[in-house]
Every structure is written in structure tokens, then in C-alpha cells.
Amino acid sequence: MKYRNEITIDLPRSTLIEKLDNPDNMKHWQRGLIGYKLLNEEDPGAVGAQMELEYKMGKRQMIMTETITKRDFPGEFHATYDAKGVHNIQQNFFEEVDAQSTKWVSESEFQFASFGMKLMGWLMPGAFKKQSLKYMMDFKNFAEKGVSVADG
């Protein structure tokens, strides 16, 4: 399953990247994030570096591993996310609209290992796209206005 989302954020690209590239900020825009652990502390942002992310979504707890596949800021950041039965390939592009705004384009591909997850992806593809867009909107609110999902 593949899809694309895009959003314009009213910040210069350098400011957007600075906020996005700080893992301590993730709690402000990734709902359900309990915590993270750098698995490559010597060079955490390098291609190949990994981070373990722990989420609580409703009654369900989920652990996923982020692996950086391309880091070419300010223009691109790509990573994969692996959780039980799901492999997510994420490509992010950051384009200057003008001096004070940036377009964030996110291309997502989900690959499912189990029949149950394949069925869910087939029956509810809109739910995945909607969740991705929600994270982007939450980032926009945090980056532009300082609104944190951790506060509510």
C-alpha cells in the first residue's frame, strides 16, 4: 500500500528541519509516543542509525525500530520503520515555498507480513493515510504555534 501526503508549514525550511530533527521534540507531535532509545549513540543521525520507538495506542503498546536510509537535509529525510508484521518505507521531502514557508511531502509505503495486517491494509487504507496526515498536522501545530500533543 502506497500513498502521499503533503502539508505547508509557515516556517523557513531551516527552522522546520531544526525542530523535526530533534528527537526530544517527537513527544510534542507524535501522539501516543511513550519514549525512544537511540541504538547508535555514537552517530545517531547518520545513514544506518537506528532508534527504538515505543507507543501506546489505546490499550495496545507497540515498539518499532526506525532505520535512517537517507539524510540529506534540508531537502530530504528517508527512513524505514519496522514493527511486528509491518515494514514502513517513509520518504520525506522539504521544499521551500518562499522565505517563510516550507512544503513537506511525505511518501509512505506499507508492506505487511501477516494475513491479518494485509487484510487491514486492504480494508482500511484510508486509516493509514489519515494517521500519517494527523502526525503531520500535529507537527505543524507544534512547529508554528508551540502546541504540544503531550499537553492534552
Rank of each mutant, 00 (worst) to 15 (best):
Y81D: 04
G58D: 02
N88D: 12
E66Q: 15
Q90K: 11
R60L: 10
T67H: 00
P74G: 00
M62K: 08
K59M: 08
R60F: 14
T65C: 07
D72F: 09
E52V: 02
D72L: 09
M64K: 03
H87P: 00
E66T: 11
Q90P: 01
F77I: 04
F73P: 05
G75E: 14
H87W: 09
D82T: 11
K70A: 03
M62L: 08
T80M: 01
T69E: 01
E76W: 12
H87R: 09
K70Q: 13
T80F: 00
D72S: 06
Y81S: 15
E66V: 13
A79V: 13
P74Y: 04
I63F: 00
T65Q: 04
E76V: 01
F77C: 05
F73N: 08
R71T: 05
G58F: 03
F73E: 09
M62W: 07
I89P: 01
A83I: 07
T69Q: 01
A79E: 12
Q90L: 13
D72G: 00
N88W: 15
Y81K: 12
M57L: 15
G85P: 01
Y55F: 14
V86W: 09
H87G: 06
K70P: 07
E76Y: 15
N88Y: 15
F77Y: 14
I89Y: 15
Y81C: 14
N88H: 14
L53T: 06
Q61M: 09
F77V: 08
H87V: 01
E76D: 12
E66A: 11
V86C: 11
M62Y: 07
I89L: 10
Y55M: 02
K84C: 06
Q90G: 09
T67L: 06
M64G: 11
Q90R: 13
Q90N: 14
F77P: 06
N88A: 11
Y81G: 15
Q61K: 13
E54M: 13
R71N: 11
K56N: 03
R71G: 06
A79F: 15
A79W: 13
T65L: 03
M57Y: 12
R60Y: 11
Q61V: 10
T69V: 05
L53C: 02
D72W: 05
D82Y: 08
K59Y: 04
H87F: 08
H87S: 12
F73H: 10
V86L: 11
Y55T: 08
A83M: 14
P74E: 06
N88C: 13
P74R: 00
I68T: 12
M62Q: 08
I89S: 13
G75L: 12
G58T: 00
E52T: 02
K56F: 09
K84W: 13
D72C: 04
Y55K: 04
M57C: 11
T80N: 03
E54W: 08
H78E: 00
